[in-house]
């Protein structure tokens, strides 16, 4: 790293003396901690995970190179495909929360003084320990005396074991995940809403457009960049779901657990419970590929629906 000695031409000549650009030596000192940490704790672990995915790594003893064996095994592993399907289903449910967040964010922006209170209420699940959220919802979903079944019984609907019955588990998780993500999505969308010029609404009101028409023809199109951002982030986060399964199923209900694992849960189990690090690493690499593909797909699709005014 050498110091750039020629000052940029646009700087006024009078300032040049004594105000030279700091040298590269200073830059090295400034970035050194971050770069060393990034190298040791991110770049190297990433490469190591990549390499391990081609190895058989026993809990003790040296690893052996096995080529694509882990990946081939993965593709023939029913448990993996089940987890993949579960993660995909969970992600779809979370995405259903995005339109809901758009409507709610628009309503709250118009709530005037009540806005602050609503924002706090919707944000509470975000700042509550996810583990605690899982525990509370497990109680709400309880098949014998849970709140949900109680409410359903008022309407004559018979209750279900929402968490313990694998037919419902992922849907039950999806509802909790959606509930947890609303607050985040609404905050991001709210920032987008406030960036929409007010005069557009005034002009359309003069033309006789009602609230609903304004929402459909002004708010939603102009909000599409924010909606796209929220959608992309939601997919990435949903594909990494772990906490809820760990809290609501592990050690509590093992029969449903077998059918309800997500990709990241399976990764955790293989790499850190059973210590099959090679196999676990392969799952992690597949997760990366899935997230990259999903994100690339969304960037491609955005051309047809995101409006950059």
């Amino acid at each position: 790293m050498t110091s750039p000695t020629t000052p940029p031409a646009r700087r006024p000549a009078g300032r040049r003396a004594g105000a030279s650009e700091p040298s590269g030596w200073w830059a090295a000192v400034f970035v050194a901690p971050a770069v060393l940490g990034l190298a040791a704790l991110y770049v190297w672990p990433f490469l190591s995970t990549f390499l391990k995915s081609f190895e058989d790594v026993p809990a003790f003893g040296p690893a052996t190179f096995v080529g694509m064996d882990n990946y081939t095994a993965l593709l023939h592993d029913e448990e993996f495909w089940k987890a993949f399907g579960n993660s995909a289903l969970y992600t779809v449910i979370i995405l259903l929360g995005v339109p809901l967040a758009v409507v709610l964010a628009a309503l709250i922006e118009q709530a005037g003084r009540g806005r602050a209170i609503y924002r706090v209420l919707f944000f509470l699940p975000v700042v509550t320990l996810p583990v605690a959220v899982g525990m509370v919802w497990r109680f709400v979903y309880n098949g014998d005396f849970g709140l949900l079944n109680t409410v359903l019984s008022w309407f004559g609907v018979s209750g279900q074991f929402w968490v313990a019955d694998p037919r419902f588990t992922i849907y039950a998780f999806g509802v909790v995940g959606l509930w947890m993500s609303l607050g985040i999505n609404m905050i991001i969308l709210g920032a987008g809403l406030r960036a929409i010029p007010k005069d557009l609404y005034e002009a359309s009101a003069l033309d006789g457009a009602g609230r609903v028409r304004q929402f459909v023809h002004i708010t939603v199109p102009l909000l599409t960049p924010s909606i796209f951002f929220v959608t992309t982030l939601s997919v990435i986060a949903a594909l990494q779901m772990f906490d809820l399964i760990f809290v609501m199923l592990r050690g509590v209900n093992n029969t449903a657990l077998a059918d309800s694992k997500t990709i990241v849960y399976l990764f955790y189990e293989k790499a850190f419970v059973q210590f099959h690090q090679g196999y676990g690493a392969a799952i992690a690499i597949v997760l990366l590929l899935v997230i990259m593909l999903a994100t690339a797909l969304q960037f491609r699709l955005q051309r047809s629906w995101v409006f950059y005014g």
């Binding site: 190297w44 190591s48 995970t49 990494q240 997760l287």
Partner: peptide, 16 residues
């Protein structure tokens, strides 16, 4: 590195 999901780092970080 910002774009890589955190699970990809866990095995190496644990080893370290």
């Amino acid at each position: 590195m910002l774009m890589v999901p955190s699970q990809l780092f866990l095995i190496g970080q644990y080893e370290l």
